[in-house]
Nucleic acid binder design. Structure first.
Lengths: 149, 149
DNA sequence: CTCATTTAGATGCAGTTGCATTCACATCAG
DNA sequence: CTGATGTGAATGCAACTGCATCTAAATGAG
């Protein structure tokens, strides 16, 4: 039972990622909407609701570096899509809250995003294949089984 | 037979991609080596051998925009990893050729790259799962079956 | 041949990223 | 309380990216 080559996974994964990403970003741009990085942040804020989120929480959720979140939030704030609120209890911190405009834009983006994703992914798989692929990709995210390291 | 949600594929795919990419780039940086974009270009030039490659050919192979290749080649040339040669037969064009230093660096990068990839991917799968995943990812790259569009 | 169109590649500019550093507040040992 | 250390967030600078545009050479219609 020979060890499989990880590049047999990585190379198509990277190519597929770039290709899907490009087609979605293109669709968003053509619709005059912001990019996926904005979407992701807006989405997390929407999920958080009135509680809002601290930048460092977004950092974990979005897998972005600290300064990445800081500046992304700057831009979103400048666009009026979020507000920064003082954080009671931690004078260093702040709470980011979605505005109505932000929610509106996220909804518009979702229409384009989900449609583009549908077109980019669905035609390639049968339902069974899709389920299996999702399952296998999930294994890349969970910690590796201890006996395999 | 319900239609599966493409985001069940996209979300883990995007996360896995970012996570693997980050760990490989980190390993390269720690080794004092250039990033994966440099590797990809060096690799293509090495494959091309004495014939070299035209920038527009790299553009297709690497899925980069035209100006991306132009500037990436600038940097590699400045680092002494490739040379630009006049293109006989097309006065607009040029041929990019790998230098010995470029080949040397690519080899050093490969050691780090392949090792990091091994650690990032292999522990998560049995050989059978790995083969299946590679196969399914491949389907994302080929044109979709006509009857599914 | 001549002019219009297309193709290969470079580049100015504005916006974005990465890195390192900085600032401010929090926390904790004494 | 006081100073040392740690944590949340911003920012200056250099490098990189995207977009639009530009130049030069090739191609093609008349």
């Amino acid at each position: 039972m020979q060890t499989p080559d990880p590049f047999d996974i990585w190379l198509p994964l990277a190519r597929a990622h770039k290709s899907i990403l490009t087609s979605v970003e293109t669709a968003l741009k053509q619709a005059g909407l912001p990019g996926l990085d904005w979407y992701d942040l807006l989405w997390e804020l929407e999920c958080a609701g009135d509680t809002g989120l601290r930048p460092f929480e977004l950092q974990e959720k979005l897998l972005l570096p600290q300064y990445g979140v800081s500046r992304l939030a700057d831009r979103l704030a400048k666009a009026g899509y979020l507000t920064r609120q003082e954080c009671s209890g931690d004078g260093r911190g702040q709470i980011l809250l979605l505005t109505a405009a932000g929610a509106e834009t996220r909804a518009q983006m979702w229409a384009v995003y989900s449609d583009a994703m549908q077109q980019a992914v669905t035609p390639h798989f049968s339902p069974g294949e899709a389920r299996r692929l999702a399952e296998l990709l999930g294994k890349l995210l969970r910690p590796a089984p201890a006996d395999k390291i």
